[in-house]
């Protein structure tokens, strides 16, 4: 449980950080909250020779709204997400999800950027960002490029992020006022990754679903945007038969690992149950 030798960098600007990444290529890794990378280094499953700590870059923190989009800097901690009045008002599901991540000590250090960029299927924010149809801003030597959260994840720990790029910000379109939302997470204990989790955001109009978005966490080697389930639910009254169909459609796209949380069969079923419960809660919260 002792990492190998590495050089520690603490740049004060994004440009400087990118320059360090460019000069060291695969041998460098950006460090945000460190909750994934540092344990991997202690186990010597990751052995970057250069660690680029983003904690000294003031520009990478903060939450702001502009023209129907909320932008969150990558180094904004989960603790800060929980404390944000703006998010509580406009995107309460972010707060709800953040509160289900680990424990307060971890949330003081853990960041939104690190959580979404690392590509760990156990993380909660990637699924939520797919549910919210967020966009990631990737900053590299050639400037910024935008990648949709729904297109970002390729496999466990493999993403669209290039070695010389930093995921600097997350842009989230603000859902309509009165939307319903819920993040349901089944876990063995505080601090654990989800056995299965589901994010739901929907809007209702007179008992009918006018829009719906469902995403799943930790039931495949990437987060899953449940497109078919979302389509099936849209336009329905959330009657039992439709919900059952949608759950089946969502379960069909899962491909979880069998591990200490349970066999694959169980985790798939739990994804369905979490989705069902999230749907019910979201519908209850939505203004008609």
């Amino acid at each position: 449980m002792i990492p190998g030798e590495f050089t520690y960098h603490r740049p004060s600007s994004v440009a400087e950080a990118v320059a360090i990444l460019v000069s060291h290529g695969d041998e460098a890794r950006p460090l945000s909250g460190g909750h994934s990378l540092i344990p991997m280094m202690k186990l010597r499953m990751a052995a970057p020779e250069h660690l680029v700590d983003l904690g000294g870059i003031a520009d990478l923190k903060g939450i702001s709204e502009d023209g129907g989009t909320i932008t969150i800097g990558c180094m904004t901690t989960q603790h800060e997400l929980i404390g944000s009045d703006l998010l509580a008002d406009k995107l309460p599901i972010v707060r709800e999800t953040s509160l289900l991540i680990a424990d307060p000590q971890i949330r003081y250090m853990g960041t939104l950027g690190g959580n979404v960029a690392n590509g760990d299927p156990g993380n909660d924010m990637p699924g939520l960002m797919q549910c919210l149809n967020a966009t990631y801003v990737l900053t590299g030597p050639d400037g910024d490029r935008d990648v949709a959260a729904r297109d970002f994840y390729e496999a466990a720990y493999f993403t669209a992020l290039a070695p010389e790029e930093i995921l600097t910000a997350v842009k989230i379109p603000v859902p309509p006022a009165g939307h319903g939302y819920a993040y349901e997470k089944l876990k063995r204990k505080v601090g654990d990754y989800a056995t299965a989790a589901a994010a739901v955001v929907l809007t209702m109009n007179g008992g009918t679903v006018s829009s719906c978005s469902v995403a799943l966490t930790n039931v495949a080697d990437t987060p899953l945007y449940a497109a078919d389930a979302s389509t099936i639910l849209t336009g329905s009254t959330l009657d039992d038969a439709t919900v059952k169909n949608a759950v089946a459609a969502a379960e069909a796209i899962t491909d979880p690992a069998s591990d200490g949380r349970g066999p694959a069969e169980y985790r798939t079923k739990m994804a369905g149950i979490m989705m069902q419960r999230a749907l019910a809660r979201a519908a209850e919260r939505a203004s008609a």
């Binding site: 424990d103 063995r188 204990k189 505080v190 601090g191 654990d192 591990d259 200490g260």
Partner: peptide, 24 residues
């Protein structure tokens, strides 16, 4: 403390080995 059928010890960390917190 679990072993798989090939003798790998599974869950030898506090990620999998259940130590309840005050919450549970």
């Amino acid at each position: 403390i679990r072993y798989d059928e090939t003798g790998n010890v599974l869950g030898a960390s506090f990620m999998d080995f259940f130590i309840p917190t005050a919450v549970e």
